[in-house]
């Protein structure tokens, strides 16, 4: 422990967090209203989102200023590393709940619905995956793995490579290469999202595959949608990092914000591989 910096930076009182709480109140109360047919609800949700964005911008702005102002040393850096690791672990567990739901339905719930116990109720239900359940009669086509999804796999894997090259560039002080490869990474993320949006449109208009298409539609859209939401967040974070790179932030030996976002991006990448295998392919 002797080599760590001796000053731990404890920030001044700050006004931003209470804005975050106000935002959450608006979003939750507004959404509950909106979902139950109360017209103003949606505007309250949007107001909440705006407040949240404001609060994040100001709060993280403070952190960036402190970081660039040299307030953080090795000791704080270790805190950030632990914090980010545990945060990613919590996200892993979040996805685990949805993957668990997928496995449970495929291995237990659906076979059980086709078992002898339920033959009286649904004599001609064939317990095969994919299924929309014994009652749904609307025919649908499952999403094929080897079109856009395979392409998306390629995109995300390449973005993992580009972000790593950017990282090497940063460590060697090659700023132009850093910016270029960050740009590639962001572009790959955006392309992924465009493809996914296209895929959703395709599912709804051509395949008759919807969120309401029984448990197949539920698990498909929940898993890919939640993942897509994370890719969106990741892309936003990468964009911020790109902007900071352009503004001359980060030093070759000290750039944890960059690394944190790269970790996050790799995490999103790995989750996608799970999705590709278990949602699209098998």
């Amino acid at each position: 422990m002797s080599d760590r910096a001796q000053h731990y930076y404890v920030p001044q009182p700050s006004h931003w967090m209470i804005f975050g709480s106000a935002a959450l109140l608006c979003m939750a109360a507004g959404a509950a209203g909106w979902l139950n047919g109360w017209e103003p609800g949606r505007y309250i949700v949007f107001a909440g989102l705006a407040i949240l964005a404001f609060m994040m911008a100001r709060w993280f702005g403070d952190v960036v200023r402190e970081s660039e102002g040299g307030k953080y040393g090795r000791w704080e850096d270790v805190s950030f590393r632990w914090g980010m690791s545990w945060f990613i672990f919590s996200e892993v567990m979040f996805f685990a709940a949805f993957f668990g739901a997928l496995y449970y339905t495929r291995l237990l719930a659906v076979p059980d619905l086709g078992s002898i116990d339920n033959k009286l109720l649904w004599p001609d239900f064939a317990a095969q995956w994919p299924t929309a359940g014994p009652v749904f009669k609307d025919p649908f086509t499952p999403m094929a793995a080897w079109g856009i999804p395979a392409l998306n796999t390629l995109l995300l894997l390449s973005s993992g490579v580009t972000v790593t090259i950017a990282h090497w560039a940063l460590k060697e002080g090659k700023r132009a290469q850093l910016a270029l490869f960050m740009l590639f990474t962001v572009a790959l993320g955006v392309t992924f999202l465009c493809f996914q949006a296209y895929e959703y449109g395709h599912a709804y208009s051509d395949l008759n595959l919807k969120l309401s298409t029984g448990v197949y539609g539920s698990t498909f859209f929940m898993l890919t949608g939640f993942h897509g939401f994370h890719v969106t967040l990741g892309t936003l974070m990468l964009t911020v990092i790109l902007a900071r790179c352009l503004a001359g932030h980060f030093k070759p030996e000290n750039h944890f914000a960059f690394e944190a976002v790269a970790w996050y991006w790799h995490f999103v990448d790995v989750v996608w591989l799970g999705l590709f295998i278990f949602v699209y392919w098998l």
Binding site: T105, G133, S218
Partner: peptide
């Protein structure tokens, strides 16, 4: 969605 709805294949 039908995660918890047997009619849709959930449980």
């Amino acid at each position: 969605t039908s995660f918890f709805n047997a009619a849709g294949g959930g449980d």
